[in-house]
Design a protein around this nucleic acid. Structure first.
Lengths: 212, 212
DNA sequence: TAGATTGTTAATCGATTAACAATC
DNA sequence: TAGATTGTTAATCGATTAACAATC
């Protein structure tokens, strides 16, 4: 059914927002919604929403709108949220612990199967239902458990060598919280960066330069 | 000196990346760099980099390039990183703790002056050099300490009422980690969202749909 | 001076918005 | 059927890239 041309990043980045809002509507018991209503609630144009959705197929009914439940499922499918990709997390510091708990609870698309750290006062400790493993066991673990995604919550210095090990173990997908741009290193790696510092600096800019 | 037309968000979001990389170069002892060299390292076009920088002024020298040290300072100034905006953080859960430690160490543009939570088993605990305060003391604290930015690390349910209190106390700038879109509520509020779930879902989409 | 690289204008590309025919 | 709202094409807007004159 889906067409999938080459979808632009701008469109892709809006999908989770649509999804979140539709889940919210579903919980509120709303069954039907038009692109115009959606546009008002999300602060977008109705045109853009219809354009976005039609990248993947015609999910609406002319003269009626979209069935919330159905559209929600469709977007969930497009996003691949039921795939439960096996994932590991490297770095059990403050941020790592936060992300780990986050992912274990609302695992949307991913399943956290291992947490690693190099520091002896972290290995062996518990994060929810997981025990933090020693990074020396990474190779053995990956060979048997075959994770496909790695979350990187380690300091900048460590990234380079860890990436090499992970890449060598066949991992090609990364959720990167390190202040380090992996993207360039491997052609076929897929990297989603979360640079908290960049986000904070952007806010700082906007406060400091109240343009408009 | 600076021109500042109305700078587009696309440009603003690239500034921290430039800044990060220039700091890195500075530490490595590099004194001079051309837009072409920069473009190679950052995976952008030289044209875009020059275009971006010239939104703020001509920082380079024709035939020579840019002086790393100077450009770094300029961008730091543009971002307003030395302003040390007084900030508070709401929600001392896993994520809140991570962000709090993060901000205390590398306070780029902001200074964390207070952490709040409503749960009795969190208030009174310590995060680095700060004690977690009871949220009931928010009004008193803000009236005397006058923070200008609030970091929101609380669950979706709590956001609405907290925002109202913070807005009432004169806070207009928010770094929002909640799965909630504040943006719409107050015209003059400045919100920088970090929706980790959205980021993760985007990654999920990209893994599930290996287009190209 | 000759060579290099910027600053800036013009051309291209892509994303958003508007419009409307199709159709439920 | 008439009214509503989609799906889709065309028009507009903005951002990126290319080109080159200015100048160090």
């Amino acid at each position: 059914m889906p067409k999938r041309g080459n979808i632009s990043m701008s469109v892709i980045r809006r999908l989770p927002r649509y999804y979140r809002f539709l889940v919210h509507l579903k919980h509120k018991g709303v069954t039907r919604i038009s692109s115009t209503e959606l546009s008002v609630k999300l602060g977008l144009t109705a045109s853009q929403i219809r354009q976005d959705l039609n990248c993947f197929g015609g999910f609406g009914q002319q003269g009626y709108g979209y069935i919330v439940d159905q559209l929600c499922d469709e977007i969930g499918n497009i996003l691949g949220l039921s795939n439960g990709y096996r994932s590991i997390l490297i770095g059990a510091g403050n941020l790592g612990r936060a992300i780990a708990s986050h992912m274990s609870f609302e695992h949307e698309g991913f399943k956290l199967i291992g947490i690693f750290d190099s520091s002896p006062n972290k290995t062996g400790t518990r994060i929810n239902d997981q025990i933090v493993r020693d990074i020396v066991d990474l190779e053995e673990f990956c060979k048997s458990e075959k994770p496909v995604m790695a979350v990187l919550c380690i300091p900048r210095e460590g990234v380079n060598s860890i990436i090499e090990r992970l890449y060598g173990l066949g991992i090609r997908n990364f959720w990167n919280f390190s202040h380090y741009d992996i993207s360039m290193k491997y052609e076929d790696a897929l990297v989603e960066n979360v640079h908290l510092n960049d986000s904070l600096m952007t806010l700082c800019y906007r406060i400091s330069n109240p343009n408009k």
